[in-house]
Amino acid sequence: MKRLHTKNCNWLLSLCFCLAMLSAKAQTDIDGIMMTKTNFCTGVVYSHSSWKNYWEGTFKRDNANLGTVSTQMIGVMGNYGITDKLNILFGVPYVQTKASEGSLKGMKGVQDLSLWVKWMPVDLRIGKGEFSAYGVAGYSFPVSNYVVDFLPMSIGLRSKNLSLRAIADYQIGKFFVTGSATYVLRSNIKIDRNSYYTTEMHYTNEVKMPDAASFNFRTGYRSNSFTGELVFSNWTTLGGFDITKNNMPFPSNEMNATRAGVAFKYTMKQLPGLSVIGGSNITLTGRNVGQSTDFSAGVFYVFDFKKKNKKNSPDPKKI
């Protein structure tokens, strides 16, 4: 197996940037790495995201009635190698929100379960490096009956999302670049009231959620024991409307954000199944979202369900 397979987990959270949070996302669904056949990587990630300023449409402001809005998350994630070229992944976070000022009560609960199928159809040597391409299909849905129509305190947006992603990865020696593009189909959601105003009145409890597109670019150093990378990402809602002046946010707002961050993963030589991860992101520009800064850290372990068959294990030297 080639460099793109690993026995290490490479989970990192790209935590949502929204006034609420979108689903917590694991990095492995967006990177150029596959789990080896029969290996199961699982672990826990904690993240903390907060913002003081937010964009009301294009108007950047703070709000003394919210102060700093923070979101903490603990997520359980897993990645299983069905084959070296086909992985399935899952993630489910517990989320808690809090505003430092004002009277609004924070919310907490289990948010959305995400499932992905990740497939690597292309893995070639090009020039001095190796090129690989991936297709990822993901589906997420709420696993608790959390309140959505209480932004920015809600823990999520409740839509069932189908995401389709293409990833390209190129590695020369220990340096790599990865780019990906994702289209997210979002289902309508239901709220607790039977009318609401967007740019006009609606007499229904159902809200049409615009689809979204996201782009992710990452580059850095990648070896079997250490990965360090720079990450740029963009999320653009394809439709939706702006928060009007001094209004509350609404789930179908046009939420956009461009972010930059760093991420690392370290695998202990003495215990190659165990890895720790960490990362941080800042929000460069946005629309109808908080200008969030996040930090995350996690621990993962790889179990091999076919220990006896050594042939399927990766060869670290090839990485």
């Binding site: 199928v117 589906y139 999302n161 289902s187 007499y203 229904t204 809200v207 049409k208």
Partner: peptide
């Protein structure tokens, strides 16, 4: 997955 995610129409009947 596609069937799952897009099976329901996005059209909303407002009362």
């Amino acid at each position: 997955l596609i069937g799952w995610g897009t099976g329901c129409s996005k059209t909303i009947d407002e009362k």
